[in-house]
Design a protein around this nucleic acid. Structure first.
Length: 1078
RNA sequence: GCUCAGAUGGUGGAACUGGUAGACACGCAGGACUUAAAAUCCUGUUCCCGUAAACGGAGUGCGGGUUCGAUUCCCGCUCUGAGUACCA
């Protein structure tokens, strides 16, 4: 039979599923290998051809490793909490779990038909309570931990309490908030429970802090940075303001140094590591305190006290602290700049300068982050009127504010050295401040010179020294006088760990006396409650504020199913038209609409009047149903939630007109506040945290869950973790560089600190797959004399001769850039009568590489390609496209070639009439050579992730064997194994046709490469003259270089080129090349 | 601006440690089979000159350098993509 890819692929996909072929074993004597793909978010659009690229690569690798004798873990699952499903829920009222479920099903179907060797028995979904139970559990461990800098690891908060109880705060070196208290044992013991908890919160690895967020009042929600465009929401275009909010944060900064050091130990792409290094942003320098000179407007004692709360020490003196990486330039400081938002600004501003400063602050506030960013040229700032003292020479230094200094970085203050820093230089020039040269070779005529070469001048005790000695001497002096010290600063901030959203993991926390407490571990998972709509409450609380009770969404969906059947029945019995009329009927009294099939917690109400202060349920089925049990259950529910309800009989509904129904509804006496919120508090007393966890929570530890996905008692058993340890190969996009990949490393280090994980780093080797871009096609509409578009289209090669405008055309009706004119005419109605100006009888389209998107008509769906060519062709073609790491435009032009290759491969096993025929004869030398060449090549290619080159090599091998008319089992059986990771379906089929038992190819041993088959006796030496190859001369490989030289020079062709002249020099590289210099 | 990656035929790309540039595939052109088309097979295909062919010249973004020899190493530049941003 000809190559019937459809039957073959269906058959083997079914076989793998039925036989759990790829189930990984947690108890194996084989060495382990863990291949992981980055967690996909199941979006509504399904897979496009870009998504599977990495999955195919990792699948090839996983299958190859199985053939190499490894016990391979290759799982897949879904990062299924996320904004798109929630957005859809807001628009349609459909529960996000249903949307998510539907999307996952699409994904699964698409993944299945590509033939991946995933172990689906370990599938995880972050939105499933079985999973997020452990996300919450890890959150609890973080809450119960603090970072001990002395031990360089996280420890239980109990150890901190024990320390406080026996030694007070002395001797604690921790990563904590800045405002921790200093206390003795007795002072600690004297603190109230509340005060103690408040203090401990400053140490916990997850803690509450006030942070600035993008608040959009119109949408009633917090927006991510990329949802804000120029100060307005991307969705709807409503104004966005900066608002302070209490938010959960993760103390990732505690791990900054370890996150940085760890990068040197892992095999990741250098650009990715560089991105993380930049993000962590370590800078080594010094912090320096500049004591305040009292401003003339403040009376001596008063002024000092006023400023002391921020920068004060025990003596009551005050100062501004700066961080600098160039403490050696301190004698060149001619002014200080602090951020306009800096806490000291108000205190420092003198009466004379107040107007200036206020104006400047007002101006800064108007500027968005973007404006501040874009405008690097304008120099702006304002003088506070106050001065500080240079701690090393006592110079009086003016304090300015300027928006180029950010409150959030370092101390929010910089010492300005105009001679060494270009920004300071421009500032000094603009405001006419002194520029002091401090290094002898410095050239500061036109710009700053940040050199570290040369000797210091104008610099007191470091005059004449070099950079290193000067820095050391300055730091030593500052430490001696207590006004500075060496310091390491990190750019990275603590990560905000909360979203004012519904579709995420609930935070397992309740509040008592305004302080957060963890819920009991036995009560995990804290399940996401049902709510009536997915918007913030009327008082601006997150959507969870609408919850009346925390219930299990899974039971909800069961209930929903039951009600679905129920609904079918009564819809037949009462008039459809009436239901339709009732739906969206307006109640004049309440100014609201009746909502059909509204959801309250986990039951569905026929109709609902939904107001901020009350709800009224309308039950039209009460008298009709024979299932009294269910009817009673509904009534009980409504009572339980104190929702009043009205019941109509069917007769009433049929007889009454709409107005009468509305009247009856409005006659119902509604008492406000009936709908109370007391039933869903923690233990009926305390309020729950209402924000949910961010998108990265669930993905920060998921690779451990795959190790032991069904475990009910732990996130993964100690034994499973001990066996699988870490991910050996991780494939995914570089867009996760500073998000997921940093947070995952952080959580992994934490899990190691608390003794749960073994390895310091979770992902040993990481490969970035390149993005697949879209390749758009264009047609060119002819523009007539009056500038209007016509219905005539000009082929791309001729557009220079006409006036045209380009229009995107669906790439699916274009083949090799030739437009299918008939399909084009039916594509859009207005093109039905289109006319064409052709070249060589064809319409050639223009091409551009752009992002793949629906609006550009350049989306290619894998389903269509699989339908046409099969999964094996798609898999090989995606690899054939080019190096995995490189971004490239998608282009189906070459897919035919890959399909032809697979057919040609199939033909090796068949005669002219498509009968399966293989011979048992001994293979020839040439056949063995072809085989061993490919065995070696593919092995090398896979190990260095060069999948595109091995596809080419397969083609070469099959071309060679076709030329040799080889159908020998000894060759083909091995070839099938080598091809199997790339094209598993065809390989399985041929493997079983060869008489092997079904499915065993997955673990068949990879053929051993035998170099003796590739040994050559002769080599055709390329002979070049001055580096230009002129001829080839075949000589034995055993010949020594001197003999090669002699033989080459004696050759007639060489003599001809030499033309009687003697060569100056002859270079012979054995087995490589001969170069004759003339 | 900074950091990183990249630039090779009409197209995707190959050349792994400096050693025959353009493998493999697409496309295109010509041919075979066919009444014809599709499918399949064969031949050619970097450019220029010449032109049946041999042969000659140029050529891996641009300009230099190191070397017997450079797509590969070094210096300077241009362009493209990604990340990041007044980071002290």
């Amino acid at each position: 039979m000809d190559y019937q890819f459809k039957d073959i692929e269906k058959k083997w996909q079914q076989f793998w599923a039925d036989n759990n072929t790829f189930k990984a074993d947690n108890n194996s004597s084989k060495p382990k290998y863990y291949v992981l793909d980055m967690f996909p978010y199941p979006s509504g659009a399904g897979l496009h051809v870009g998504h599977p690229l990495g999955y195919i690569a990792s699948d090839i690798f996983a299958r190859y490793k199985r053939n190499k004798g490894f016990n391979v873990l290759h799982p897949m699952g879904y990062d299924s909490f996320g904004l798109p499903a929630e957005q859809y829920a807001i628009q349609t009222g459909q529960h996000p779990s249903l949307t998510t479920e539907a999307n996952i099903n699409t994904y699964r179907r698409q993944l299945d038909q590509i033939g991946f060797s995933f172990d689906w028995s370990r599938e995880v979904r972050t939105s499933s309570p079985d999973y997020y139970k452990w996300t919450q559990w890890i959150f609890m461990q973080l809450f119960n931990s603090w970072y001990n800098k002395a031990a360089e690891k996280a420890e239980s908060i109990d150890s901190l309490v024990a320390h406080f109880e026996t030694k007070g705060s002395a001797g604690i070196v921790a990563v904590s908030d800045e405002d921790t208290l200093t206390f003795t044992v007795d002072e600690w013991k004297a603190l109230s429970e509340k005060a103690k908890q408040e203090e401990l919160l400053k140490y916990r690895l997850t803690y509450l802090r006030e942070s600035t967020v993008n608040w959009c009042a119109a949408l009633g929600t917090v927006l991510a940075n990329d949802e804000v465009k120029d100060g307005f929401s991307e969705r709807g275009g409503y104004p966005v303001e900066q608002k302070k909010m209490m938010q959960w944060s993760m103390r990732i900064t505690a791990y900054a140094e370890r996150l940085l050091q760890g990068l040197d130990t892992i095999d990741w792409p250098e650009p990715l590591k560089e991105m993380q290094r930049n993000w962590i942003g370590k800078s080594v320098g010094a912090s320096v305190k500049f004591p305040l000179s009292l401003s003339p407007t403040l009376s001596e004692g008063e002024g000092a006290e006023k400023v002391s709360p921020i920068g004060g020490d025990s003596e009551g003196a005050s100062y501004i602290e700066v961080f600098t990486t160039r403490v050696d330039t301190i004698f060149g400081v001619s002014f200080l700049v602090i951020a306009p938002e800096h806490e000291l600004v108000a205190e420092l501003t003198t009466v004379e300068q107040k107007a200036d400063i206020d104006a400047y602050i007002a101006q800064t506030k108007k500027k968005s982050e973007l404006d501040r960013m874009a405008d690097t040229k304008t120099v702006s700032g304002a003088f506070t009127g106050s001065y500080v003292t240079n701690p090393l020479n006592g110079d009086k230094i003016p304090v300015w504010i300027a928006d180029y200094v950010l409150a959030g970085y370092g101390t929010g203050a910089v010492m300005a050295v105009p001679s060494g820093d270009q920004r300071d230089y421009l500032f000094a020039k603009h405001f006419d401040l002194p520029i002091i040269p401090i290094i002898d070779i410095q050239n500061i005529e036109t710009e700053a010179d940040p050199t570290k070469e040369g000797k210091y001048i104008n610099s007191d005790f470091i005059n004449g020294l070099g950079y290193k000695e000067a820095t050391a001497a300055t730091v030593a002096k500052l430490e001696e006088i207590g006004l500075g010290k060496a310091k390491v600063n990190f750019r990275m901030r603590d990560a905000i760990f909360g979203r004012q959203r519904y579709w995420g993991e609930p935070v397992p926390v309740y509040f008592r006396n305004e302080l957060p407490y963890l819920i009991d571990e036995k009560e995990l998972p804290l399940e996401l409650p049902e709510i009536d709509k997915y918007l913030p409450t009327e008082t601006g609380e997150p959507p969870l504020g609408r919850a009346t009770k925390w219930v299990n969404p899974l039971t909800h969906s069961k209930f929903d199913y039951a009600l679905n059947n129920y609904r079918d029945r009564y819809y037949k019995e009462i008039s459809e038209a009436l239901v339709f009329k009732l739906n969206n009927a307006l109640s004049p009294k309440y100014g609201t609409y009746l909502k059909k099939e509204a959801l309250i917690n986990d039951i569905i109400i026929d109709f609902l009047i939904d107001m901020p202060t009350f709800k009224l349920a309308i039950d039209i089925t009460y008298y009709k149903t024979k299932d009294t049990r269910r009817a009673n259950a509904r009534r009980k529910y409504l009572k339980y939630y104190r929702i009043p309800y009205l019941q109509f009989t069917e007769d009433e509904l049929v007889k009454l007109d709409l107005d009468s129904i509305i009247k009856k509804i409005e006659r119902f006496e509604i008492r406000p506040q009936l709908f109370s919120a007391t039933d869903w508090n923690y233990h009926h007393q305390f309020e729950y945290e209402l924000s949910t966890m961010p998108g990265w929570a669930g993905s920060s530890w998921y690779w451990y869950r795959y190790m032991d996905a069904d475990n009910n008692t732990e996130f993964a058993s100690e034994k499973a973790i001990a066996y699988w340890k870490d991910v050996d190969l991780y494939i995914g996009g570089s867009e996760h560089a500073t998000g997921h990949l940093l947070y995952s490393r952080f959580w992994n280090k934490f899990l190691k600190d608390i003794g749960k994980a073994i390895e310091e780093e979770p992902f040993k080797k990481l490969i970035n797959q390149g993005m697949i871009q879209g390749r758009s096609n264009f047609v060119y509409r002819l523009i007539d004399g009056e500038g209007r578009g016509t219905n005539t289209f000009v082929s791309h090669g001729l557009i220079k001769e006409y006036k045209t405008s380009p229009i995107h055309v669906d790439v699916n009706i274009v083949e090799n850039d030739v437009l299918n004119i008939n399909k084009f005419k039916t594509w859009r109605e207005d093109f039905a009568d289109a006319e064409f100006i052709l070249e060589n009888g064809k319409y050639i389209c223009g091409v551009e590489v752009e992002k793949m998107s629906k609006s550009k008509f350049n989306v290619v769906n894998p389903d269509d390609l699989i339908e046409r060519y099969g999964a094996d062709t798609l898999r090989m073609y995606e690899m054939f496209l080019g190096p995995l790491e490189q971004s490239k435009p998608w282009n189906t032009n070459g897919i035919e070639g890959v399909f032809k290759f697979l057919r040609k491969f199939w033909r090796l096993f068949h005669d002219a009439n498509w009968n399966f025929v293989v011979s048992n004869d001994a293979p020839s030398k040439a056949e063995l050579k072809a085989l061993h060449k490919i065995i070696k090549k593919v092995e090398e290619d896979i190990e260095r992730f060069s999948f595109n080159t091995s596809v080419s090599s397969f083609m070469i091998a099959v071309n060679e064997l076709t030329d040799l008319k080889c159908n020998k089992r000894a060759i083909l059986e091995n070839l099938v194994i080598v091809l199997a990771p790339y094209a598993p379906h065809i390989a399985e089929e041929l493997w079983s046709l060869l008489g092997n038992s079904e499915g065993t190819i997955s673990t068949a041993a990879y053929p051993k490469f035998q170099p003796e088959y590739l040994v050559e006796d002769e080599f055709a030496y390329p002979v070049s003259f001055n580096g230009k190859v002129r001829t080839n001369i075949s000589l034995p490989l055993t010949m020594q270089p001197a003999d090669v030289e002699a033989a080459v020079l004696a050759h007639a062709d060489v003599q001809k080129h030499l033309d009687g002249k003697a060569p100056k020099k002859v270079i012979v590289v054995k087995g490589r090349i001969v170069n004759v210099v003339v």
